[in-house]
Nucleic acid binder design. Structure first.
Lengths: 209, 209
DNA sequence: TGTACATCAGTGAACGCGCGTTCACTGATGTAC
DNA sequence: TGTACATCAGTGAACGCGCGTTCACTGATGTAC
């Protein structure tokens, strides 16, 4: 079934990935709208013109980074939200903490470019987040608590959860880049995030009162 | 009492404001980290070197823009949150809608640079938002509903409201920059935001159950 | 398996251009007497 | 009020530098027979 790539294709993929990795690293300290093509090729160790074999522009590269950063996250979010009861919030907060610890640069990139200066990238992120919200809505709908809710209100709630997850992720990120990252600080963020989600869940339970 | 500025000081202030205005306009389509000094001076109509008479760098100018964008907003937020009862949410959503309509570029700038690539600007925004949260906490504390709440939980709730306001502001902004801005779209954003805040308020009412 | 040709990822020179910063300057405004 | 000097916001030339993009190229890989 699986088609083994030729040597040429395999090498091309490898270089492409090197571009993505190098760009992500460079974007820890600047925005995509100021990222230079030559800057990236220098970091990869290829000629500037090699860039055009893979991307039309840095904006194009940015869109590829959005897919890399968020594309593989859908199943994880889905199964986490599918968890029932009080466990759900705990697991969600742990998922976020672990993901930020494992892929800080990806998280920073998304937070930064969500409202950044490059339109196609903003759109790619908005579309991905809308997908997350829709998936969360679908999971919430399976919940017994969702009885009596209309689709609009469920989607409204789903957006609230997704936005809350993003805010929490960016707070975890700040604990990482603080001058002296401490486990205590991370615990505080986790606790606040947990309470905020609990408060939202409480509101949910009494929505139809 | 009021000291009239000399001609020289008055002219300097005017030029400084021209820098801020020109930069804000240029930042509608890019991030601060890619904003060029010469780009700004060209827009103002002065020599590049004039820039240094007012700012050390574009980052410095960015910090000044943060103060301009958020500094005057504190009293308005305070009085809005001070409103009691069901009116509070309606007024808050209207305040946000009006502010975004009146100062779209300021709102975009804050949303963009909150997680942008320029550290001193990020810090200035974070400090301002922390002030808002503290002010909201102080207002909420006056509320009869706050009886039995500890300070930590009140601040947690205040942050939830502030983040929610920012998200709503950026959604209103998107309705403005959509290819065909419609009043209907704006109404939809207002309605969703209102419901989300109501849901949070519901959670608040049952927090101590 | 071997050969002849096609493909195409990466090269390297060259281009015109705008960048941030320096420096000594100018001339209107401010100040001291 | 008038004069002599100080201040300083804005000037304009000059600098070295890195940028994005073009182009014809090379040589390893792929393909047809």
């Amino acid at each position: 079934m699986s088609h083994t790539l030729g040597i040429r294709q395999a090498q091309k993929q490898k270089t492409r990935q090197a571009f993505l990795d190098a760009a992500l690293a460079l974007l820890e300290e600047q925005s995509l709208s100021s990222l230079g093509l030559r800057e990236v090729t220098r970091a990869v160790g290829v000629a500037p013109t090699a860039f055009y074999r893979h991307f039309r522009s840095t904006a194009d590269l940015g869109v590829a980074l959005v897919d890399e950063a968020l594309g593989s996250l859908h199943p994880m979010v889905r199964t986490t939200v599918a968890t029932a009861g009080a466990e759900r919030i705990t697991r969600a907060v742990r998922l976020i903490a672990d993901h930020v610890a494992a892929h800080p640069a990806h998280v920073r990139f998304i937070a930064r470019e969500r409202h950044g200066g490059v339109q196609p990238v903003r759109e790619a992120i908005r579309d991905q987040l809308a997908r997350f919200a829709e998936e969360v809505r679908a999971e919430l709908a399976k919940d017994p608590e969702a009885a009596g809710w209309n689709e609009d209100d469920l989607l409204m709630l789903a957006h609230l959860y997704v936005d809350q997850m993003l805010i929490t992720a960016s707070l975890f990120l700040e604990t990482l880049e603080s001058p002296e990252p401490s486990e205590a600080e991370r615990q505080r963020v986790a606790q606040v995030a947990t309470r905020q989600m609990r408060l939202i869940s409480l509101g949910r339970q009494h929505w139809l009162d």
